[in-house]
Amino acid sequence: MIKKLISISLFQLIFVINLNAQTDMADGLRSNGKIYVVVVVLATIFAGIFAFLVKLDRKISKLEKEKN
């Protein structure tokens, strides 16, 4: 009886896992933490673009002040 219960619950567990894994998602990347590498890389690129825009903005502001 107990064996049967265990096997049923095991089956259910596997079934539930299968349900979740039906659609391929980047679960592996998330479980071993490598998704953070992607986030850090993208955040770095964005920070670089932002810094460039800030620099450009300040340069133009300076020119505008010099003109007056």
């Binding site: 980047a26 955040a43 932002f50």
Partner: peptide, 25 residues
């Protein structure tokens, strides 16, 4: 705008999304 985009980059990859076939991630 910069803060919102930084948030987009971080949360856009880390928050859960619906599991849909073909589309996936």
């Amino acid at each position: 705008g910069g803060t919102l985009l930084l948030y987009t980059v971080i949360a856009g990859f880390l928050l859960p999304v619906p599991r849909l076939d073909i589309l996936n991630e």
